[in-house]
Design a protein around this nucleic acid. Structure first.
Lengths: 339, 339
DNA sequence: CTGAAAGCGCTTACAG
DNA sequence: CTGAAAGCGCTTACAG
């Protein structure tokens, strides 16, 4: 199949003027007579002319396109964040290309290569849980393609970062469980290399400390960010000689696993075990019982990361200082922890 | 920030040969001496040279990129279908741009315009439920940008279509309920304009007919494809003087609404009301009780639609005949309908 | 106010 | 085997 697009040259031919004049008239240049402008614009509309963005990209070495890499678009947290990215990008005249890493370093690298070769103007990324090495992002930055991190950030690179206050979210969740009378509070954490895992773990520990509750090594387990992971770790926790009376889950997938494992094992929430997770609200309220969760402003994170990125793209030089924004999370209490 | 990319010209300068020779050597042309090729390739690697795809696009009037428009990427059905699209696209050397219509005609039009102006090579789309008018897709096709429909198709346009056997899926679900002893089977259908709504409704009706069960107008309600829609319509059904003893839901969102409404109203599934839905399995098994569902091969639909699209893109002329592929669906029985 | 020319990075007939 | 030239669709100094 062949595409025929009408060009500036064709308009020039039909009007018997030069391409330069057409180009200027279309961009409403002050040095073209009103009369010529009108003729050109009228014909352009009639012919349904659209400038070829590819030619412009070649000229400006800019594509007006940004990339987003997230672990998984099916995850509500990320699809909502992408909504925020698109929101800002479109309003500032950029298009968005979405990539999924599926938590795989190799996929992330391949997306980065694609971004570099496609001359994408910049990248917003939530790092894959498998990526301890982030050389591929450093390399993009060195090539002049700015990178902004959101949600999953890394200390290994200087750039803008937008994340949620994971520490405080975890602290609040743990404190809430303590106030509800729980004393044996377990935590199923995410994979170790991920930044948010550390922050959340710290929040959990500090809340215990504040109330003089002893931290027990065996009550903290690391898990993949999957439902199956949450289920397996819950089996392990409930098999302990001294069982926890509460479990705090580090992600929504993990929390779903906790929930289904507890039901399957015959425990009642919150009476036997109270549960709080970092969760998507729509999801958690469907479960029985509905799960208390720390909600995160995902849409807003996408927006802020993108607006920082576009500022980087549009400024001539590297900023004096990179910014790390920490957005507040919010604890929503549901039946699973209402003792 | 400024991007500096190394070009063919630079390689030519350093090697003191012409750009033409460099270009040919890089594409491994047979008319270049082995020696020259080696030199060129070695230097290209050293300099980390990548051809500028934008220049090539301008030359070939091809972008090696396809678009996908789906109502909502957060919906598992679509995110999985996108997985299938990406799978085929990448393996055939294409990149994928993802757009969401959010079930809005205006958003779908704007995505189509973007696709046209960006010279995307082709489009795979599941039509928004709001789009009775699909002129924007016809217009793309007329501009030489092939369009393939999947899941939500339309008769208003001649092209390849890939859909699931909605008729049979609905028939099977209804028949299953009948065999379980249900006689007052309600159906919460999707929005009227959507093609799949009709197919599913027909399957439902025909199954009733086969078992000589009278079709009752008031037991079929149309709903938006949202959880809230399913909930509202369930209220309406259960408020009827003669209550249904089974509800068949036309989509996963609707089915979640049915499920939560029934629980909230105090009905037991399946004893009071049996439930079957067109559902995502991972989702439906989290509910209590787990919901029986007609599952659809979403990944495969994405794959097949994309491979048909790429064939269109790569063939010189319009095919003699357009194809409509109908993939089988599968009924998975869970507790919600096990009477 | 308008046009001819150069150039963005590449490919490819046409010569030699 | 290699090079000079034209061209993809556009913009923009430079002339006039």
């Amino acid at each position: 199949m062949k595409k025929v697009s009408i060009t500036i040259k064709e308009i020039a031919r039909q009007l018997d003027i030069s391409k330069s004049t057409v180009s200027r008239a279309l961009r409403d240049s002050s040095e073209i007579s009103e009369e010529t402008k009108k003729k050109v614009i009228a014909l352009a509309e009639e012919l349904n002319y659209y400038p070829n963005p590819i030619a412009i990209s070649l000229l400006k070495n800019r594509t007006q396109t940004i990339g987003v890499i997230v672990p998984d678009i099916a995850n509500r947290f990320y699809s909502s964040a992408i909504g925020g990215v698109e929101d800002i990008a479109y309003s500032r005249g950029y298009h968005t290309m979405i990539y999924q890493s599926h938590e795989l370093l190799e996929r992330e690298r391949s997306a980065s290569r694609h971004i570099a070769s496609r001359r994408v103007d910049g990248l917003v990324v939530a790092i894959s849980s498998q990526s301890e090495n982030i050389e591929h992002f450093v390399s993009l930055q060195e090539q002049g393609i700015p990178v902004v991190f959101f949600d999953r950030v890394s200390d290994a690179m200087q750039t803008h970062k937008v994340r949620v206050d994971d520490y405080k979210g975890a602290f609040d969740a743990t404190e809430h469980l303590i106030k509800r009378g729980c004393r044996r509070i377990a935590h199923i954490a995410g994979p170790k290399p991920v930044s948010i895992t550390r922050f959340r773990l710290e929040g959990y520990k500090d809340a215990l400390r504040k109330y003089d509750i002893k931290f027990q090594e065996e009550w903290v387990l690391h898990s993949e960010i999957t439902q199956a992971g949450g289920t397996e770790r819950t089996y392990q926790l409930m098999a302990l000689r001294e069982r926890p009376d509460a479990i705090f889950g580090a992600s929504d997938r993990i929390t779903m696993g906790i929930h289904s494992a507890l039901r399957q094992l015959g425990y009642r929430m919150p009476d036997d075990v109270a549960v709080v997770g970092f969760c998507d609200l729509a999801m958690s309220s469907l479960l029985d019982p509905p799960v208390s969760s720390i909600t995160q402003p995902s849409f807003e994170m996408g927006q802020q990361a993108t607006s920082l990125l576009l500022d980087l793209i549009e400024s001539k030089n590297t900023p004096a200082e990179y910014e790390t924004r920490v957005l507040p999370s919010n604890l929503v209490i549901n039946k699973s922890s209402m003792k």
